[in-house]
């Protein structure tokens, strides 16, 4: 009897956490992507390039400056669970792809917003980098799944 209750509790908490990931995590992801779509549509003629030298620089604009954007987005329980299943069979881990994409878009959008606020209308030399805050590369520790992205770019005023 006691054993049965234990098994029921284990399964119950697993189902609860998967449900939490499905409903709350899914809702948070959808609203984040909607928010990103909305903010990105307001960028207008802002130009983002990743060439090393700024193009069409305006002569009377403010001096160019370095801008950095960070975003750390956590995985939810369902995503982590699906990824561990995927790890058994191999193939594309779709649940993590959207996670990385959200972190990159968020970090880049933060740069664009900073640049516009400071009166710039273009950034060049965009560099993206993943940081390991969750400790996936640290031996002997169960890591948290998250996407930590650091983006740097040079903001300048573009002609025309």
């Amino acid at each position: 009897m006691e054993n049965a209750i234990g098994i029921l509790l284990t399964i119950g908490s697993l189902v609860f956490m998967l449900g939490l990931g499905y409903f709350v995590g899914g809702w948070r992801e959808r609203s984040h992507i909607q928010d990103l779509d909305r903010r990105e549509s307001g960028n207008g003629d802002f130009v983002i390039t990743q060439v090393k030298t700024a193009m069409d620089v305006s002569v009377n604009g403010p001096p160019p400056t370095l801008l950095i954007g960070e975003a750390v987005i956590a995985s939810d329980y369902l995503k982590t669970f699906l990824a561990s299943l995927r790890n058994l069979f191999g193939g594309e881990v779709r649940s993590y792809r959207t996670l990385m994409e959200r972190a990159r878009r968020e970090a880049l959008q933060r740069i664009v917003e900073q640049a516009r606020q400071a009166g710039y209308n273009a950034v060049c030399n965009v560099r993206m980098q993943a940081a390991d805050v969750g400790g996936s590369n640290v031996a002997g520790k169960k890591a948290m799944v998250m996407a930590a992205i650091l983006v740097s770019a040079t903001a300048y005023r573009r002609e025309g």
């Binding site: 990931g21 995590g25 956590a74 982590t80 799944v145 998250m146």
Partner: peptide
Amino acid sequence: NLVGGELKGY
């Protein structure tokens, strides 16, 4: 990590 979303602290 259960519900997803941005980790503002990090």
